[in-house]
Structure formats: structure tokens, C-alpha cells
Amino acid sequence: MIQLHNVSKAYQKDSSALDQISLKIEKGEFVYLTGASGAGKSTLLKLLYGGERPNRGQILLDGRNITRMGPRQLPLVRRRLGIVFQDFKLISTRTVFENVAFALEVQGRKRFEISKKVYAALKNVGLEHKLNRRPLELSGGEQQRVAVARALVVDPIVLLADEPTGNLDPETTLELMDLFKSANARGSTVVMATHDRELIRRFPRRVITLDAGRVVEDRHV
């Protein structure tokens, strides 16, 4: 599903954020990306959704090389991804429903189809009763569930999450993990960057450890 060949990324000339990364993630895998702060976890995820371009190397996503993709094709790839961030990235002026619907609107889907899918996605995260609220009227855990609903509403082939539990308490972290696991069970490949060793211990999966831009450990379970 995801393949990296000798991928290097440097934001500045002398320091490299990622250094010759090669790895392969199969379809349906659940992968933790871990490592110290500044190790390059976020950078790797950015490369996967095309938010940054590698200086060197090739990235294949579902068999397509996204390394040299132009601004017209990249959006089409992103439509098949779900992305979740530590800071939720919700639009505060829109309702919960509109936030989730956004991901389908940009694809030009039909309205009744959007309503149906958005409702189902919100029900999946247990927030169907709050669809007219604004994000700031919700708790952090609820906001992150809205973000997850937005990511999952498109039935993503790959779910990318950058420290999705970073701002959540242990309780809500567990709720969120359930959502990720069930998405994974439904077929989405999941790549989650996290610092949380406790989480990894509780839900053991494949762990890729980065340090200073290199893969120092790749532990399959």
C-alpha cells in the first residue's frame, strides 16, 4: 500500500529531517510511528499526503508515485486518504455536520449522498446528536472524534494520524483507539505517529521507530 525508496527530506540545506528512509507498509496494516521529538515523524506523514515533497527518493501510494505529482493529481490522491491531527484542524465557524461534509463537498458529491454519509460517519463516532454544534462548543475528545469522522467519511484506503491522542486524556484516548481499530478492521491501512508508549503497549502493533531522520527499529508484531 505504501512504499518508500531512499526517501530523504531536508528543510534546510545542512540538516536533514529524514535521511534515506526505505520501508514498506502492506494493505490493512496498523503501524505506529514513534521516536523522540524532532525525529521526523510528522515530516514522514507530510510526505505521505503530499504536504511536503522529498528531496530524494520515491514514494508509492497504492501503486502510484506521488513524488512528482502535480497540483491537479495530488488532490485526487488525497481524497482517498483520511488525515487526523493533534490539533484537530476543524473549521470553527462551521457546524459539526458541515465540518464533516466538507470532505465530500470538495469531491463534488451529491447532496443527499453527503447527508447520508455524514450522518453515518457521525453516528460511528457517537456524535450524531451534536451535528449542529460548533467545534468550540465540544470537548477536546469530541472535537477529535469529529475530525476522525471527517477522515473516515470518505472510506479512506489509508488513515494517517499525527499524534491524534496528544491532547486527550487516557479515557478519551481509548475511545479514539477503538475508532482507529475498527476503521483498520474495515480495511483502512493506518499509520499513526505517537509518543505514547503506554498506548503501544496496550494495543501492540507494528512499530517503526525513527531517530534523527532514520529508521532505527522496525518491530513487526
Binding site: P75, R78, A103, V106, Q107
Partner: peptide, 16 residues
């Protein structure tokens, strides 16, 4: 800008 960033992240084309 937040909205624009999110639009791009969920796969909106530049024209859109």
C-alpha cells in the same frame, strides 16, 4: 487560511 488548508488536505483541487 485554516479553511483553505483543510480544503486542500481533504483533496480539493486548486480550481475548486
Amino acid at each position: 487560511r485554516d479553511e483553505l488548508e483543510i480544503m486542500a488536505l481533504v483533496g480539493a483541487t486548486p480550481l475548486f
